[in-house]
């Protein structure tokens, strides 16, 4: 945080304000309810561009940590960010802000689905949405795969293909596939450097 408390020449706004717990909560509530199709861009907009609680570099670093950890990235990010500014209470407040509103909304939807899921019209609409959402996920895969598969081939695409075959075709349990592939992949990354 060395350069963030000053105002370096390139940064129009100095990062001097620290969020209070209610501010932290409100910020993550807004991030969560704006975040259709991924909350990350909204988190960045809120934290870096609007509130100036972090510089872009600090944000990237905190997000790198969130990606490094298993589990949902944005959820991890709320804990990392909250704990940096408010310790354990900060982490709890940010997490509650991020998960609270979606949990309420989705619980209502789950109730409605349990009640009306068999209604022909609703089930048709959901079928269409599921087909479209699957297409979007394929697009995400293609975007992720492009840098890995288009440059000089090394071990990485083979690991990705092996993970795909193990989970999608063989339908092996994820922990097994992970235990078999992750150590190999990490060792190869270690040796490559």
């Amino acid at each position: 945080m060395s350069d963030s408390t000053r105002s370096p020449a390139g940064t129009p706004f100095p990062v001097t304000t620290l969020p209070s717990l209610p501010e932290l909560f409100r910020a993550f509530v807004i991030v969560s309810i704006s975040g259709f199709g991924g909350a990350l861009p909204w988190a960045r907009r809120m934290i870096v561009d609007q509130k100036h609680w972090m510089t872009a570099d600090e944000f990237n670093e905190a997000f790198a940590l969130s990606q490094f950890l298993p589990g949902p990235n944005v959820v991890n990010f709320s804990v990392v960010f909250g704990s940096r500014f408010g310790g354990a209470p900060g982490a709890a407040v940010a997490l509650a802000g991020l998960m609270g509103p979606p949990l309420i909304i989705v619980t209502v939807l789950a109730f409605l689905y349990a009640r009306f899921g068999d209604v022909e019209m609703l089930s048709r609409i959901l079928t269409g949405i599921a087909a479209a959402a699957t297409g979007l996920l394929i697009a995400v895969v293609a975007k992720m795969a492009a840098p890995l598969f288009l440059k000089r081939w090394d071990w990485a695409p083979l690991i990705a293909i092996a993970a795909f075959i193990g989970v999608a075709i063989m339908q092996w349990p994820l922990p097994w596939v992970f235990a078999g592939l992750a150590p190999v992949s990490i060792a190869l990354a270690w040796m490559k450097r």
Partner: peptide
């Protein structure tokens, strides 16, 4: 740390591709 992070990239790509397959 860097080796773990870059080693996990292809694993998660394979898993997400498997998600798309299962959902399709």
């Amino acid at each position: 740390r860097i080796a773990i992070q870059s080693g996990l990239v292809p694993v998660s790509l394979g898993l997400i591709a498997a998600s798309a397959f299962v959902l399709a």
